[in-house]
Design a protein around this nucleic acid. Structure first.
Lengths: 342, 342
DNA sequence: TTTCTTTTGTTAAACGTTTAACTAAGGCGC
DNA sequence: GCGCCTTAGTTAAACGTTTAACAAAAGAAA
């Protein structure tokens, strides 16, 4: 009933049904006319034998398969997993499978993961680079696989890109805070070595300059929010302390909130807080957090649309898409306390 | 330089280097002796041509490849993505790739996703079933691919399983609350149709029975926490209202917290809250949330270990692993207010 | 009847890789 | 000079699938 290797191939089906493999293939793919009788017999055999086609063989034969590779920096960040969830939905709708790999910390590992992904000969790739250099772009272009770059854009882009307008989003947040009466803001980031983050920072700085506000101080606290506590506490204890904090990533939003609680600052009475990214938990805190909401779904969808166009053969010039963010105003922002001025 | 199809194959390398394909394969895989000179020449050719092997071809030839499929109910739940992240790390360490699919809501979709995964002829599978029935177990066993079932166990298990001791964990939480002086607890769950959740509930009920406490009320609020607000508020406004809430999933923890805030209940003064799962945000709320922490990493690692054993040919009887959870005590739990008694 | 068309099915090559079986050549002991 | 081992490399088959090219049979038009 089943071949010795435990796998049942199209050959087994053909034999059992007393036809040629080509006929089986034809009924499976629905390519050519097959008589009612034979078709039914084959369907039945397939059912009882539990046959399903081998992707590897199809892929080998076809040259490429309905698979796209997705490379993200890490699977620990909810932003990335949200993107993946969204891409997976799109892919499934279009009959594609996705293969996910996380790049890991160092460039060597990233490049090896990319190679692994490419060795599947995917029909396309979606890449969220680890850093601004994106040294692997060359590898990718050389492979002739269509790809789109998401979220973190390298300096020079010869490919389709989809990203968010970080500068505008951050500027909007600063604008809103200024409208509440804040004059001194504090920017907290993991690192300014990512273009993404730099743009967010630049947006705030530019707004403050335009509005005649003092240039906001920026804190680079790294990825371990715990260690940021003393730095942050010190910044808030200064003589002319900031009255509002803008956190530039979701992890920093979380870290900042913890620090504020631990150091006894009350949000928003003592200090206002604007977070980056918008997750469910931000609506469950007391107060709920005012946040810069990235359009995750639309990022994924647009990237997918570009990619499928390319896969379909579109060879027009690369497109750079920038999507706007939205500020979700909630309870963590309020006018600064005026009492302190006197 | 490159074949017309844009892909460079082992054949191209062989031709360019003036050797047979077998020799190229031998230097790539390091299988047989190849003279220094030839080896270097081939390496160089590989480099300049940008060759890397085609997984599909290897897989076809070898029968199976170093890939394992992972099937989760959804990619929106941080518990599942955390598991995936962990499995991915394990896989990478052992030189495996993983292919992830999310099963989606209905059974039909789940089963089609499973088929898609199996069509890759993975060396193994890790499955987190959608429900207790796990109708696809048959499909999986028929395919002869080793697999381990994670987290949500079907009633009858003929496979290796790795899960958490839900009953004990929930009982511990109830025990802790009772120790603080709580006598009336409220259990909130999305649904009791999952064995997992039923076990958690049973653990609490059993503890209360043992301790001579009244049987706790249970609220099934579905997946949309918003709609739960009136129900929850009503339960807390009752005459003999519960003084502690145990939320049975991470989403419910979040939802319950929001409801409490919106209805003006102060945690832990008015009511204590124990959450399920332990995520970073639970430490950023004020107060931080006492939570039943599932050993996510260990779940993933154990599952991976079992799977690799099976892949290596271990054919001993299936093993059922149960891991203990840990109660992380934080600020959201406190002794009940005694004033209300009078 | 002949010829042409349509319908239904088969044969065989190809995709890129690995590997068992083979060949050729060099070295060594006698 | 002969036999034998070792080393370095080649040949060809196989994995499971698709599909162009072909064949056979059955109608249809003449």
């Amino acid at each position: 009933m089943r071949s010795p290797r435990g796998k049942v191939s199209i050959r087994d089906v053909a034999e059992a049904a007393g036809v040629s493999v080509a006929t089986v293939s034809n009924v499976v793919r629905g390519r050519k006319n097959v008589s009612q009788a034979v078709r039914e017999r084959i369907q039945e055999t397939i059912e009882t034998l539990g046959y399903f086609p081998d992707r590897a063989a199809i892929q080998l034969r076809e040259g490429s398969n309905r698979v796209v590779g997705v490379l993200v920096p890490s699977l620990d960040n909810p932003f990335f997993t949200a993107i993946i969830a969204c891409l997976e939905t799109c892919a499934r709708n279009d009959g594609y499978d996705i293969i996910v790999a996380s790049a890991g910390e160092d460039a060597a590992s990233a490049s090896s993961r990319l190679r692994a992904l490419l060795s599947w000969r995917p029909a396309g790739m979606v890449v969220l680079p680890n850093d601004d250099h994106f040294a692997d772009a060359a590898l990718l272009s050389a492979s002739a696989v269509p790809y789109v770059v998401l979220d973190r854009l390298p300096q020079s882009c010869t490919a389709d890109t989809v990203a968010v307008d970080n500068e505008q989003a951050a500027s909007d947040a600063a604008d809103y805070l200024a409208g509440l009466g804040h004059r001194k803001m504090l920017v907290v980031a993991t690192t300014l070595s990512l273009a993404n983050i730099r743009q967010r920072h630049a947006g705030i700085v530019a707004f403050c300059a335009r509005a005649g506000l003092p240039e906001p101080k920026v804190l680079e606290v790294g990825h371990h929010a715990e260690e940021a506590l003393p730095t942050l506490a010190a910044a808030l204890a200064e003589n002319d302390a900031p009255t509002a904090i803008i956190a530039l990533t979701n992890s920093i939003t979380l870290g900042a909130l913890r620090c504020l609680h631990q150091s006894g600052h009350v949000v928003p009475d003592d200090v206002s807080l604007v977070g980056y990214d918008d997750y469910a938990w931000m609506r469950a805190t007391l107060p709920p957090i005012t946040a810069i909401r990235q359009p995750v779904e639309e990022l994924g969808e647009q990237a997918w649309r570009r990619l499928t166009h390319r896969i379909a053969g579109d060879s027009t010039a690369p497109v750079q898409v920038r999507l706007p963010c939205m500020l979700a105003v909630r309870g963590s922002t309020a006018p600064p306390r005026t009492g302190k001025l006197s």
